[in-house]
Design a protein around this nucleic acid. Structure first.
Lengths: 160, 160
DNA sequence: GATCCAATACTCGGATAGTAACTGTCCGAGTGGGAAAGG
DNA sequence: CCTTTCCCACTCGGACAGTTACTATCCGAGTATTGGATC
């Protein structure tokens, strides 16, 4: 039950894209975060497939947010990278063994699956409450200096 | 982000142990659920390490719940099998790259880690709300017949 | 000087190896029960 | 018939392979830039 490490990188990328004025290449994001460029590209592709970011090809291309950061929730990013399937997959143990329940009595999920689903929904609801814009404000409040502004400056200044 | 399959088996075992009058061997539980006996033993060992069940050795030994089922929450079982660590592990990306925050400014978790921690706590809180006794009542309500009673009868009648 | 065109350098995208975690399995250590022998 | 002793069958517990999913990587497809040639 460990969340994929790519989620963290994807969230950082989305926050950084908030401070960008134009498309940012994946290699630039990787350099800024000090992570593997090729692996980060994989996560950004996932974000692209989920229509959270748009890829711009060509010489001065890169990734841009498709929506205002207020309209992108943390849940959107997590589900884009991890997938939308529930954390708990019921294997229908109740239909196995000598005292198996007949399949026609198992139309509804069992009590265990229901309980896990409730918890899963609570987790997702908490992630839906926070937007990327919120994250940007929060990291700004963590330090006295304007971190996001610095990032924006670095993105335009750092040339290959 | 997939929950280990052993959690489902462990929860079923705990519910079944509610209906037992004496120690139940792991092999019996596996036979009842139609799963691999040796693998189920692994999960039961985890429950034993967490002091949720007690192992009784010897000829007519097995596993017994250490507490009344009202005092065992689903979260207890999940944490026993999956571990207590949070689903999100922050790798401190902010401390890497050219614009790295200095370590002395990173005493508190970053905004992303805090957000994920809130969601993690919401998930655990939902699991803490349901006890094994609740699960027993729920599965009883799912079907007209007294499933738990049948299980109890089978446990005492089925001889190797 | 403006326009058109082609070469180019840079971008993303999916297909490809390596590694860690989960799944499934095995055999040894330990213990209570039961049979047998003795009083 | 009761007690003691010993053996044994059955239990759990940790150590051992197989498989899946995650991590990390590579090279090919495509496009805006950019420089030059032309009008």
């Amino acid at each position: 039950m460990k969340l994929s490490g790519g989620v963290e990188a994807a969230l950082h990328c989305c926050v950084v894209l908030t401070a960008a004025t134009g498309p940012v290449p994946a290699a630039r994001l990787a350099q800024l975060h000090g992570v593997s460029a090729t692996y980060l590209a994989k996560q950004l592709q996932a974000l692209s497939r989920a229509d959270l970011v748009q890829s711009v090809q060509g010489k001065s291309g890169g990734y841009v947010l498709t929506r205002p950061p207020e309209d992108i929730t943390v849940l959107d990013v997590v589900e884009a990278v991890e997938g939308t399937q529930s954390t708990f997959v019921c294997t229908e143990i109740r239909q196995r063994g000598p005292l198996a329940s007949p399949p026609e009595a198992c139309t509804a999920p069992c009590a265990i699956a229901r309980t896990m689903a409730v918890a899963d929904r609570a987790w997702r609801a908490a992630l839906r409450e926070v937007s990327i814009a919120d994250l940007g404000r929060l990291v700004g409040g963590d330090y006295d200096t304007d971190v996001l502004g610095k990032v924006g400056d670095w993105l335009v200044s750092a040339e290959p």
